[in-house]
Amino acid sequence: MTTGRCRSAADRSSVFAPKWLSPAQVALLLGFGISKVKMKIATGELRSVKDGKYRRILPEWVDEYIRDQIERQEAA
């Protein structure tokens, strides 16, 4: 049974999490500058797709990038 109340902004944000991330969001997430994220996209280290004039990155691709970095560190 519902109470008829509207959900708070915090409740809605968990329901409507973004499917794509912008390079700026990824930079914040990883603690990088935007230039470093753009460089990693340009070199292919971080996957992205072009959506019109924007670059978009799936959260899974950020996780993949992190795993690759860990594997490189462990192999060295």
Rank of each mutant, 00 (worst) to 15 (best):
residue 1 M to G: 15
residue 1 M to N: 10
residue 3 T to H: 13
residue 3 T to V: 07
residue 3 T to R: 13
residue 3 T to Q: 13
residue 4 G to L: 06
residue 4 G to S: 02
residue 4 G to Y: 09
residue 5 R to S: 14
residue 6 C to S: 15
residue 6 C to W: 14
residue 7 R to V: 11
residue 8 S to Y: 01
residue 9 A to E: 09
residue 10 A to T: 11
residue 10 A to C: 06
residue 10 A to Q: 09
residue 11 D to T: 03
residue 11 D to I: 03
residue 12 R to C: 13
residue 12 R to Y: 12
residue 13 S to P: 04
residue 13 S to A: 14
residue 14 S to A: 13
residue 14 S to W: 11
residue 14 S to E: 15
residue 16 F to E: 12
residue 16 F to L: 14
residue 17 A to V: 14
residue 17 A to L: 14
residue 18 P to M: 02
residue 18 P to T: 00
residue 18 P to C: 08
residue 19 K to D: 13
residue 19 K to L: 15
residue 19 K to R: 15
residue 20 W to Y: 10
residue 21 L to Q: 07
residue 23 P to Y: 10
residue 23 P to G: 09
residue 23 P to W: 09
residue 23 P to A: 00
residue 23 P to K: 11
residue 24 A to Y: 07
residue 24 A to E: 10
residue 24 A to R: 03
residue 25 Q to C: 05
residue 25 Q to V: 01
residue 26 V to W: 03
residue 26 V to N: 02
residue 27 A to D: 04
residue 27 A to C: 08
residue 27 A to H: 02
residue 27 A to N: 05
residue 28 L to D: 15
residue 30 L to Q: 01
residue 32 F to D: 01
residue 33 G to Q: 10
residue 33 G to M: 05
residue 34 I to C: 09
residue 34 I to R: 13
residue 35 S to Y: 06
residue 35 S to A: 11
residue 35 S to T: 04
residue 36 K to V: 04
residue 37 V to C: 04
residue 38 K to D: 00
residue 38 K to Q: 09
residue 39 M to R: 13
residue 39 M to S: 12
residue 40 K to I: 11
residue 40 K to H: 14
residue 41 I to N: 04
residue 41 I to E: 06
residue 42 A to G: 09
residue 42 A to P: 00
residue 43 T to S: 03
residue 43 T to Q: 00
residue 43 T to M: 05
residue 43 T to K: 01
residue 43 T to L: 03
residue 44 G to S: 00
residue 44 G to D: 01
residue 44 G to K: 00
residue 44 G to R: 06
residue 45 E to C: 00
residue 45 E to R: 03
residue 46 L to G: 02
residue 46 L to F: 02
residue 47 R to E: 12
residue 47 R to I: 02
residue 48 S to I: 04
residue 48 S to L: 09
residue 48 S to N: 07
residue 49 V to G: 05
residue 49 V to N: 05
residue 50 K to M: 02
residue 52 G to Y: 07
residue 52 G to P: 06
residue 54 Y to K: 14
residue 54 Y to V: 11
residue 55 R to D: 02
residue 55 R to Y: 08
residue 55 R to P: 07
residue 55 R to I: 06
residue 55 R to A: 01
residue 56 R to V: 00
residue 56 R to M: 07
residue 56 R to E: 07
residue 56 R to H: 04
residue 57 I to L: 04
residue 58 L to R: 12
residue 58 L to W: 03
residue 58 L to A: 06
residue 58 L to I: 08
residue 59 P to L: 01
residue 60 E to W: 03
residue 60 E to S: 10
residue 61 W to T: 04
residue 61 W to S: 12
residue 62 V to D: 03
residue 63 D to C: 02
residue 64 E to T: 10
residue 64 E to C: 05
residue 66 I to G: 04
residue 67 R to P: 01
residue 67 R to E: 11
residue 67 R to L: 06
residue 67 R to M: 08
residue 67 R to K: 08
residue 68 D to E: 13
residue 69 Q to P: 06
residue 69 Q to V: 10
residue 70 I to C: 10
residue 70 I to K: 12
residue 70 I to M: 12
residue 70 I to A: 11
residue 71 E to D: 14
residue 71 E to R: 14
residue 71 E to V: 11
residue 72 R to D: 10
residue 72 R to G: 06
residue 73 Q to K: 14
residue 73 Q to R: 15
residue 74 E to M: 10
residue 75 A to F: 07
residue 76 A to C: 01
